[in-house]
């Protein structure tokens, strides 16, 4: 906890929000939060739904999400370095929407609904000194999302690019980022090799979500991943398969 308090103090003003999530009861959790002087946000994950969805099998565990909403890191909180956080702060809102002045409430509403064009248009109408910079920060946020999408596509991570393009095309309709997303979607859907790689990536990610407990199950998964790696050699699917196989092999060793 002291580590996360430090991160909260250091990176909060630069765009990082920390939320500790538990599936335990409120009474003992709140007592613990007070005793440990936790300074950042916390919340309850009823029934551990989010934890299961994120494939968390042991705690503490953490995920880092970039301003585009993509999970860019997962692991033990102690393994989270300042450099890693720095790397993913680019384009994030320095001031969270709940700290914006009242005059910007319509911008906040549009943004929370992920209506980026409306939010930027509304921000252009703001004239107060306190609201200065909101429009620029929203434009930077949208541009950052488009840049991340292009990077996924250029790196051959077609599955992430396709998922992201769909969301950005919808949320950033009427903005250049929305056009970029549509263009990338079109390129992917007309590229047979991209579609082949996506099938391989989907197969790897399906294996990622499987709850593998027994050594035999893990060994079988590794064999499947090795097969996928050979079949999709030189592509993002093979890279993902190799990474997951290495993680599973490490579990077997332990």
């Amino acid at each position: 906890m002291p580590h996360l308090n430090e991160l909260h103090e250091k990176f909060g003003p630069r765009g990082l929000s920390i939320i500790s999530v538990t599936s335990e009861g409120a009474g003992p959790t709140e007592k613990w939060v007070a005793e440990n002087e936790v300074k950042y946000a916390y919340a309850y994950d009823k029934g551990g739904k989010l934890m299961r969805d994120m494939g968390v099998t042991g705690i503490p565990n953490a995920i880092l999400i970039n301003p585009a909403g993509k999970i860019v890191w997962q692991g033990g909180p102690g393994g989270l370095t300042d450099d890693l956080i720095e790397e993913h702060l680019a384009g994030s809102l320095k001031t969270p929407v709940w700290e914006w002045p009242k005059e910007a409430s319509s911008v906040r509403t549009a943004l929370v609904k992920r209506q980026f064009k409306k939010a930027i248009d509304e921000a252009a109408e703001l004239t107060g000194q306190e609201t200065g910079g909101i429009q620029e920060s929203l434009i930077a946020l949208v541009e950052g999302r488009a840049k991340a999408l292009s990077a996924d596509y250029e790196s051959g991570d077609f599955l992430s690019a396709a998922e992201s393009a769909k969301t950005i095309a919808q949320e950033c309709a009427g903005l250049p980022a929305g056009d970029t997303a549509k263009e990338i979607s079109k390129k992917i859907s007309s590229d047979s090799e991209a579609k082949r790689v996506m099938k391989g990536q989907a197969a790897v990610r399906k294996l990622k979500q499987e709850e593998l407990k027994r050594p035999k199950e893990i060994e079988e998964a590794i064999a499947k991943l090795e097969k996928l790696s050979r079949k999709f050699e030189g592509t993002a699917a093979a890279t993902e398969a190799d990474a997951l196989a290495a993680q599973l092999a490490s579990r077997l060793e332990h």
């Binding site: 765009g15 920390i18 705690i59 565990n61 301003p67 992920r114």
Partner: peptide, 10 residues
């Protein structure tokens, strides 16, 4: 929205 978020499971 727009923030870099660290979710810790604890």
């Amino acid at each position: 929205v727009g923030r870099t978020v660290l979710i810790e499971f604890f």
